[in-house]
């Protein structure tokens, strides 16, 4: 029972980071209609900023907010200079985001280096809950994620803001005829999603080391999570994250570990083909051109 609970919290903490990045993607892809391949790099930048701040002596939790702000700004700049021009041709936006991800990755390599970065456990405590030892930081990661998911769910999905976003993604012009300030909302969602990526990066580096290549490793899981659950569906991102977490755990126990990543990929491909709108149902993203 003890081991189970520990493993559960461990898996959940990993799944949390995946959920955060997936949530960012599902909102941006599903509700703002932008496919941002550089989202993984956004997370990586968040982690790196956290690292820099912590190494400079800043308290982790303040550094975390610093990372969120930094990536939020990054997102704002990217949207205003790049993605806003491709709202009518999302394919071009996707290709540009490939370029952006290459740039970010290599700029970070240049500025820092390829060596992995890590920070000491910010809390370095072990809580005893019900007689079971639990690493405090992991539990906190899960807690933070739960709070953020709740905020996002009620703040975006369930609010009229969410309805407006869904309308905008399905028909931009008609949404404008309803009085919806589509461009402004798109920018807002993009910034919010980017902030989530920054948070994910900060939490990730609190748990394990990251490298400039971490972005490209997580991005595909992020897309997997959002596509499995359904684009624009916050609950779906949670389900997707848990599904992938489960696949990982099962593969570690019963499968061949080196094929772990493969299983998640296959799951995603299968769901994409059989049910493109995801398990919980979501938008189909921008009308692809």
């Amino acid at each position: 029972m003890d081991i189970f609970l520990q493993q559960l919290i461990n898996s959940l903490s990993v799944a949390s980071v995946t959920i955060l990045i997936g949530m960012g993607i599902t909102l941006i892809f599903g509700l703002a209609g932008i496919v941002n391949f550089a989202h993984g790099e956004f997370l990586m930048v968040g982690g790196m900023v956290t690292w820099l701040l912590v190494m400079a002596g800043v308290n982790f939790f303040i550094a975390m907010f610093g990372a969120m702000a930094a990536v939020g700004v990054l997102g704002y700049v990217a949207e205003r200079t790049l993605f806003r021009f491709t709202l009518n041709r999302p394919m071009n936006g996707f290709i540009m985001s490939i370029g952006l991800s290459v740039i970010l990755q290599n700029v970070v390599i240049k500025a820092l280096n390829e060596v992995q970065k890590s920070i000491p456990d910010p809390i370095a405590k072990v809580w005893v809950i019900g007689g079971v030892d639990i690493i405090a930081m992991r539990a906190i990661v899960v807690a933070i994620t739960v709070v953020v998911v709740a905020i996002t769910y009620f703040g975006i999905t369930r609010s009229r803001y969410g309805v407006a976003l869904r309308a905008s993604v399905s028909d931009q012009d008609t949404a404008a005829l309803m009085g919806i300030p589509v461009r402004r909302y798109v920018t807002g969602v993009f910034i919010y999603g980017s902030v989530l990526a920054g948070l994910g990066g900060a939490l990730m580096i609190a748990l394990f080391p990251i490298t400039p290549f971490t972005g490209s490793v997580v991005i595909i899981r992020g897309f997997a999570v959002s596509l499995i659950g359904g684009l624009g569906n916050v609950g779906g991102a949670v389900v997707g994250g848990l599904v992938l977490g489960l696949v990982d755990a099962l593969s570690a126990q019963y499968g061949y570990p080196q094929w772990t990543d493969a299983y998640s990929l296959v799951v995603m491909i299968v769901i994409l083909i059989l049910r493109p709108q995801g398990l919980l149902g979501g938008t189909l993203g921008p009308r692809a051109t």
Binding site: V163, S170, D173, A175, M178, G179, I180
Partner: peptide, 30 residues
């Protein structure tokens, strides 16, 4: 367009352009 709506200029577009995935009530509220 979105600001024109605030002024009272409302258009019912060609082809209706109903939000197909939303309910009638949601369409009205929109």
């Amino acid at each position: 367009a979105d600001r024109a709506v605030g002024l009272g200029i409302i258009m019912v577009p060609e082809g209706r352009k109903i939000f197909a995935d939303m309910t009638v009530r949601e369409n009205l509220r929109l």
